[in-house]
Each structure stands twice: as C-alpha cells, then as structure tokens.
Nucleic acid binder design. Structure first.
Lengths: 136, 136
DNA sequence: TTACATGCAAACTGTTTGCAAATAT
DNA sequence: ATATTTGCAAACAGTTTGCATGTAA
C-alpha cells in the first residue's frame, strides 16, 4: 500500500531532511507504488505531468539527498544519465538494452559464486549485477 | 609479450580501421602490456607523457571505434567518466571505491546462479558483475 | 527569527561534432 | 586521386552551484 502523507514526512525527518513541499511531492511519486527506477529527467517530467511544480535543479538535489540518506540507491548504467532505484535492498537488475529500461530481478536466490580472494585490506561494499538483455 | 608493430597494424586492418600513426600509438599503449582499464583522459595523459601527440578528440574517437570494432569493451561505473577495458572476454570486475580503480577478477570460475526466467522475447547479451570494495 | 531549501541562470565536466588541413591507400 | 582521419574549437548533454528569495521550525 502507498505510504500515507504523514508516513512520508516521518521518513524524511528520520533521514534528517525537512519535509518541504517539493520533497514530499517527489517522495510521493517515488514511494507511492512499488519499486521504481527513475532518472532526474523522468522524475521531473512526472512531477510536471502531475502539476507538482519542482525545478529540475531541485530534482537533482533531492535525488542526491535521498541517495545520501539511504532512501534511494544509484544504479550504474553506462551512458551519461544516472538512474536511481527506490529498492535499496540487495538485489540485481535486468537492463533492456533496446528500451534503455531497468527491471529488478525479483529473486533473492540469485548469487555470485566463485569469487577469488579479495585484494588485501578490502571488503565487499556491495555487488552489482546487471544482466543485459537483447531483443531476440 | 607485447605485440609487434606489424601485429598491431594487422589487428587494426582486420577491424576495418586504417593504421594511422595516432591509432598505432594508442593501440601500442593499450595492447602493449596485459589487460588495462583506461579512460579517455588517462589514455590521453599517457600519450602525452610518452611524447605521442594525439588530440583528446582523437582519443575519444579512437576509443569508440576500437570498442565498436570489438577491440575494447566499455565498463559501466557510475559517474560521468567512461572506462574501457582491453580484455574483451567474458569476465567480471572489482572496483576499488577509494581509488576509483577497476581490477579484473582473474577467474573463469565466477558464475551467477539463480536467475529467474528472462522477460519474454529477450536473450542475454552479457552479464556485468561489479564487486565494489571498500577499504577495511 | 534563523537556518535551511528552492529556483533560476550561469558554470562545469565529459563527450561529440563540423570543417579545413593532413594522411593512407 | 580519393576517401578517410585528424585537430581544433565550438556545440552538446547531463549535472552542479552561487545567490537572492521563500519556507520550515
């Protein structure tokens, strides 16, 4: 179920972010439905379509703040655009190359096997897996 | 062993690229030693240091041409910079977050298990695995 | 009332491109 | 001789930032 407005405000506060109108609007779009993948541009477009006035600069700032606060996770896809994922838990992605679209791999059973010893003095922060899919 | 100059010219020709001085110089830097990971900027810097005059635009064009020809592979790391890998075979990467450095995972035993069924009408182009390492 | 957030436009970074001069075939 | 490549500078896309105005606490 979509979180209530009060929930969202609480979430922001918990992350040390003032629940301003813009942040509430963007968080509403981001966290209303299930897991989502957005770029700054796409989220800005959505906000416009929903008559929620936010400047593009604020969308950028907000996405970065949410990411720093652990509310979002950035996904590295080659190319210039940055993608942000509302699912911050450990999971992997399909990338539909023809559409440029990211899709969560909905399985906790996926595992990476056979990693050799890590370089001295390091530990795993996280493992990103992107399965690139072609049409066909 | 580093490929001889003639070998490199042959490699370029085989890829449908004229072996110009600049392309030979850059290929020399790229393919002289083992597997390498470069950005346009870093390769340009290397060329300068080696007194091999090449413009930055040509480095960009060359990296893209080599990639299109299958001589290089692009690696997606978040951030603006593009990285290119001289190892075009199927393999995965460690990414040292503190140094911003890519390292090949030198093992063919690494495998990804448990992928659910692919979306209808798609097939795997390739799988990118990036193991992000923190100091510690 | 005070610190923080927003919006705009300007700045910035990495990358691509148009075009005249240079080079490979 | 002809088509391709190069280098430069200008164009570009995505993103960040400075600063005056607006807003949350």
């Amino acid at each position: 179920m979509p979180p209530a407005t009060g929930e969202i405000a609480k979430k922001l506060r918990g992350a040390g972010l003032r629940p301003t109108r813009q942040r509430l609007d963007l968080a509403g779009l981001l966290f209303a439905s299930g897991d989502r993948h957005v770029s700054a541009e796409s989220l800005h477009g959505e906000a416009q379509a929903a008559r929620l006035p936010v400047s593009l600069a604020t969308v950028y700032n907000t996405l970065n703040q949410f990411t720093a606060a652990g509310l979002l996770r950035e996904v590295a896809i080659e190319g210039n655009r940055s993608y942000f994922d509302t699912n911050t838990s450990n999971h992997f992605h399909y990338f539909l190359e023809d559409k440029g679209q990211l899709v969560d791999i909905g399985s906790e059973r996926v595992e990476v096997f056979g990693l050799p010893a890590l370089p001295e003095g390091t530990r795993i922060d996280r493992i990103d897996v992107i399965v690139r899919l072609k049409r066909g």
